[in-house]
């Protein structure tokens, strides 16, 4: 017993000697590296915050009701508003969602539940989907121009045209996120359903899809929040400033980002201020949609 305790205390003292000294995590090299990491983080966050703050301060005088209720005005430049753009963006979003969601979910369901992933054509589709998600948005604008041309529209700056462009743009995102949501539904659930005598179609429709809805909703909303900020494909289509509310799919329309883009290139200071205020509105819309997506994800997420 005493021998053991002596040995233990000897070991203890030698260990104590080894424990002394400056932490090697605090040597200059480590600290330098840590500082570089911090700098990278702050650079991103601070620049973004500064931009938002600058825009908010610049636009503060015009964050009023008229910004939402008035149309763009050439005469009363300090009362110019974004009614057409805000309503137009809402119209475009709803139409885009109606076009993109069924198509995207349908494609994803086919790829996940029905397609034989070993065949060369399905693999081709798979690779292309990943690439399509990274195609510049302006390309989708040109594609939409071609589609509208084929449909026989001479003026393409209408709700339908813009929605086709934006739907094409977000389709790959919707498909990819829907596939992930479907894949997250455990195989045991499908097997349980099939073992009861359900068809693959019944299993998908009654079990897999309902379980995947939160994931699909989250992905779709994130896709739409990307679409709402897009100007390039819509400019290609020829969307221009209008002074009326859209009332149908074939009505002329303008989106908020286009209005901002056009006003901010004007030399009048009133327009600059109004554009800054509109940017804050657009940011609020996007943040709102993202918040909704996060809420849905957290509220309905299922742990299997």
């Amino acid at each position: 017993m005493s021998v053991a305790s002596t040995a233990a205390s000897a070991a203890q003292s030698s260990v104590q000697a080894n424990l002394k000294g400056r932490s090697r995590d605090k040597n200059p090299k480590s600290i330098l590296f840590l500082a570089a990491l911090w700098f990278s983080l702050f650079f991103g966050v601070v620049v973004l915050l500064a931009l938002i703050l600058d825009t908010a301060i610049a636009g503060a005088p015009r964050l009023d009701g008229e910004l939402f209720t008035n149309y763009e005005s050439r005469i009363n430049r300090d009362e110019t508003g974004f009614r057409a753009g805000i309503l137009g963006s809402v119209w475009l979003m709803v139409t885009t969602a109606i076009l993109a969601i069924p198509l995207g979910i349908g494609a994803a369901v086919h790829l996940e539940e029905f397609a034989d992933s070993r065949t060369w054509y399905n693999r081709l589709v798979e690779v292309n989907l990943q690439n399509l998600a990274a195609v510049p948005s302006i390309i989708y604008g040109m594609l939409a121009v071609a589609i509208m041309g084929l449909l026989g529209f001479t003026y393409k700056g209408i709700v339908l045209g813009g929605a086709i462009a934006l739907a094409l743009l977000i389709l790959p995102v919707v498909i990819i996120t829907t596939r992930e949501a479907i894949r997250a539904v455990p195989e045991e659930i499908r097997q349980g359903s099939l073992a009861l005598g359900a068809t693959v179609w019944q299993t998908t429709w009654r079990n897999t899809l309902p379980s995947a809805v939160p994931g699909i909703a989250t992905g779709t909303i994130l896709g739409l929040s990307r679409a709402i900020g897009e100007a390039a494909p819509l400019i290609i289509l020829g969307l221009a400033v209008v002074r009326e509310d859209p009332a149908g799919l074939l009505d002329k329309v303008v989106a908020l980002p286009i209005q901002i883009f056009q006003l901010s290139s004007e030399s009048h200071e009133e327009y600059q201020i109004a554009a800054s205020a509109a940017i804050i509105v657009l940011l609020a819309m996007i943040l709102g949609m993202n918040a909704l997506a996060i809420f849905i994800r957290n509220k309905f997420q299922r742990s299997w």
Binding site: P186, E188, I189, Q191, G192, S193, L194, A195, L196, G197, N207, P210, S211, R302
Partner: peptide, 15 residues
């Protein structure tokens, strides 16, 4: 499968 049912290793109730 409607005549020959199956119970699995891990309980797999539907959500």
């Amino acid at each position: 499968r409607t005549h020959i049912g199956m119970v699995f290793q891990k309980p797999n109730p539907f959500p």
